[in-house]
Structure formats: C-alpha cells, structure tokens
Computed example of a mutant assay.
Amino acid sequence: MNQERLMTVLVAPIVSEKATMVAEKNEQVAFRVLQDATKDEIKAAVELLFKVKVESVQVLNQKGKQKRFGRFNGRRRNVRKAYVSLMPGQEINFAEAI
C-alpha cells in the first residue's frame, strides 16, 4: 500500500464518552476515517502510525443529520468511523504519538 495514502486514512481519533467506555471495556480505539477507506487500509495505517498490532477493524457509516441553520435547512456531513481492536497487551497513548 502507498505510504502517503496510509498517512491520510486516519482523520482524527474520536474522544467521547462512548469511545472511552468502548476503549476501557473492549480494548478498542475509535477513529474518524476517510469515506473511501477500507478495513485493510485502516489496519495498516494504525500499525504504521502507532507501532501496535491490530486484531480486527469494524467500520460504520453514520449519516449526517438534517438540521436548521436559522431559516435555512441544512445537513451535517456523513462520518465514517472505525473501531480498531488491538491485540492483548497493546495500547495506544495519544500523548506520546504526537
């Protein structure tokens, strides 16, 4: 796989209450990823950037909500999320990764 592509696959880690509970319970980490990213690309990108072993990747597409902005109807953008399961004993520390 192309190194430049792998560097852009992960958009941002998801830091929320749900993502924190999932991380503690199932040893998974949540990321926002590109819309056209595949599971193999996500796995390779996490292993390359964070130097950890990935067990599996689960991907979901979240549709953007319809919202009103003043008097105009609008739509939030669609989001693709990846829940990455790490091998036992592996851990991602975002403070050291930067």
Rank of each mutant, 00 (worst) to 15 (best):
T20M: 14
F94S: 08
A95G: 02
G64D: 01
K43P: 09
M1N: 09
L60I: 06
K39E: 10
E91T: 12
E91Y: 11
A30L: 13
M21A: 12
I92Q: 09
Q62C: 02
K43L: 02
G74K: 14
V11W: 01
A82G: 09
A37W: 07
K81V: 06
I98E: 09
F31M: 09
K25N: 10
A82Y: 12
I42Y: 12
E55G: 01
N61Q: 14
Y83I: 14
K18C: 00
K43T: 05
N26R: 15
M87T: 07
I42R: 11
K43C: 03
K43W: 01
G74E: 12
K67T: 07
R75C: 06
L48D: 03
S56K: 13
K18Q: 15
K63H: 07
Y83S: 15
E27F: 04
I98P: 01
R80S: 04
Q62P: 00
L60Y: 01
L34P: 00
F72H: 06
N78R: 13
V11I: 14
G64L: 04
A82D: 08
Q35G: 05
A95L: 13
T8W: 00
R32A: 11
E41R: 11
R71P: 00
V9C: 07
Q3P: 15
N73W: 09
Q28D: 03
A82W: 02
V15G: 00
A45Y: 14
V33H: 09
I14D: 04
K65H: 04
K51S: 02
A45S: 14
G64P: 07
R68E: 03
V54E: 02
K43A: 06
L86H: 14
R71Q: 10
Y83M: 15
R71E: 09
K53I: 01
V15R: 15
A44I: 07
A97I: 08
S16H: 11
E47W: 03
K18R: 15
E24F: 04
V79W: 12
A30W: 14
T38E: 04
F72K: 11
F94V: 02
R76Y: 10
A44V: 10
V84T: 10
F69K: 12
L60Q: 08
K81I: 15
K65A: 14
V29L: 03
V52P: 05
A19H: 03
L48T: 04
E24T: 10
L48A: 05
F50C: 02
A30F: 13
Y83R: 15
K18W: 00
F50E: 01
